[in-house]
Design a protein around this nucleic acid. Structure first.
Ligand SMILES: [Mn+2]
Ligand SMILES: [Mn+2]
Ligand SMILES: [Zn+2]
Ligand SMILES: [Zn+2]
Lengths: 140, 140
DNA sequence: TTCTAAATGCAACATTGTTTCGTTTAGAGA
DNA sequence: TCTCTAAACGAAACAATGTTGCATTTAGAA
């Protein structure tokens, strides 16, 4: 499907209005693919994009199942486009993320699923995040 | 071993001077055990403890293998005392951490080791962090 | 006890994110 | 196509978290 079509489709599916900022930001994520983007990276790409609006857009997209969050080792939040099966308040992409210490990029490792672990019985598990770090292929 | 003795031993082992702040902070970590502490939590416990010095102390302890870092889901850094086998610039405690969404505490799950995974070959893995979240035993 | 490198304390700054509130606008309905 | 309103935006103000530079204090070796 064409990019503009996918954008329209995703926003409609999430019951979101088609605003300039949303189309702009969503385009970035679609183009980034499995590379996760920080708020700052998006912000600096568009001079007249308001920081606050951007934060709100990211939160909205995350809640709708359009993007998912990946914390990186430095504590910064990054976001990447979700796989098809995520929906409103229900994320299904439980994969690991790799943070490259050289280029500082975070990539989704869609094929590295987070394994099931047995916790002490009194912990009630809801989410899990696996953050790997090292050097990516491009940086070696 | 007595608390003061352990503090002396750990600082000496890390080749660190025995300063007031370091003894104070290290005591907190020893008493906290497997509960990870944020900078803020320590800071508010001692009114006249300088924020900047505290950050530096945490960094120093981390480098010496006295405490280890655990990112929590909110992006905040937390720290907990290391197991015996960590040393200068060489951490050996590769366990998962559990973040309770209710009490916001992070605990070390010393027995939950991070499993080995097969990554795409071009990634050179150095570290891994596994952050589980949900509700802890005390909060149910 | 002396002396110096290490540690501290303060100021100033940077990054990341939230809240409040007035203004603009998307898009549903007439 | 036009009107109208809830949703989204933009600006200001604030908070949390962390770093850097520099002058002062201090631990502990000699
Ligand atoms: Mn991902
Ligand atoms: Mn731990
Ligand atoms: Zn890289
Ligand atoms: Zn709890």
């Amino acid at each position: 499907m064409e990019l503009d079509q996918r954008i329209k489709h995703l926003l409609k599916h999430g019951n979101l209005r088609m605003t300039t900022v949303r189309k702009l930001v969503l385009k970035e994520f679609l183009e980034a693919g499995s590379i996760a983007l920080s708020s700052y990276e998006i912000e600096k790409k568009f001079e007249d994009l308001d920081r606050i609006t951007l934060y709100r857009t990211l939160k909205t997209f995350e809640e709708c199942g359009i993007i998912h969050q990946a914390v990186d080792v430095s504590g910064r939040s990054k976001y990447a486009i979700c796989s098809a099966d995520c929906s409103n308040h229900n994320h299904e992409d439980h994969h690991a993320h790799f943070y490259c210490k050289k280029c500082e990029r975070t990539v989704c490792l869609d094929d590295v699923k987070i394994p099931t672990l047995n916790l002490p019985t009194d912990f009630q598990l809801e989410d899990s995040q696996l953050v790997l770090s090292g050097v990516c292929g491009a940086c070696q």
